[in-house]
């Protein structure tokens, strides 16, 4: 019988098969199962329903459920691909996959474009960037005069908006982040390399007969 469970357990509702999820992502089966440990702890923090709602997501990010945050909302909306107001385990693993150190750079560029294209128009527009800058200033309690914000926006759009039509398209974004790779730093989570070490308890809750590495 060995150390591992020899039977396949019935998965929890909304819990997609880890073998299938591993085949669709850069994660191994063990890593998907370790991610489930993280998912379980987030999704049960307010309502134990196997789904992450916005409040639980904010709580996991800030350890404070009252803290509304434009950027956390934006990330949540991008994870919530089915637009149901909740993130299921499959959504979570597939979104986290983009943040894997081995994920293709193109996927990271595309995700970051969507993150900043808040209105979903296919362009990052100046008013969106201004809104995000103001949100950042509120969050950090940093004070900048409106004139300074406009100067930062002028400089940014001069560099990024090559055709100077007042908005950044996907191709301009691609070139801009390629020239400024530090902008993609938020798109990589080194933690994902060591997820099985961070959540070793996945071994005891495994649904597969053998733990693949």
């Amino acid at each position: 019988m060995g150390c591992f469970h020899s039977t396949v357990r019935k998965p929890a509702p909304g819990h997609e098969n880890p073998i299938i999820l591993a085949s669709q992502t850069a994660f191994s089966v063990s890593e998907v199962e370790a991610l489930f440990e993280l998912f379980k702890s987030i999704s049960s923090s307010v309502i134990d329903d196997g789904l992450i709602n916005k409040e639980e997501f904010q709580l996991a990010l800030f350890k404070n459920r009252k803290k509304e945050n434009l950027f956390a909302n934006r990330i949540f909306d991008l994870f919530d691909v089915k637009h149901r107001g909740v993130i299921d385990f499959g959504d979570f693993v597939r979104a986290m996959n983009v943040f894997h150190p081995n994920a293709p750079q193109e996927d990271k560029i595309s995700f970051s474009f969507k993150l900043y294209d808040m209105d979903g128009t296919g362009f990052i527009e100046r008013h969106e960037v201004k809104q995000m800058l103001i949100a950042l200033l509120c969050e950090s309690e940093l004070k900048l005069a409106d004139e300074t914000i406009e100067t930062i926006l002028d400089k940014t759009f001069l560099e990024a908006d090559v055709d100077q039509d007042g908005k950044i398209d996907k191709s301009e974004w691609h070139n801009f982040v390629t020239q400024n790779p530090s902008l993609l730093k938020i798109m990589t989570l080194p933690y994902l390399r060591d997820i099985t070490t961070t959540f070793p308890s996945f071994v005891f809750n495994s649904e597969v007969e053998e733990i693949a590495t």
């Binding site: 960037v129 969050e139 950090s140 940014t156 990024a160 989570l189």
Partner: peptide, 26 residues
């Protein structure tokens, strides 16, 4: 005061709300 030399996206990417590492902190 010092002039701001970062572009808007460098500043925005400092947001705590965009730092998903905190999801892994128990």
């Amino acid at each position: 005061s010092q002039p701001v030399t970062m572009n808007a996206f460098e500043l925005i990417s400092k947001s705590q709300g965009l730092n998903l590492s905190s999801l892994f902190e128990k």
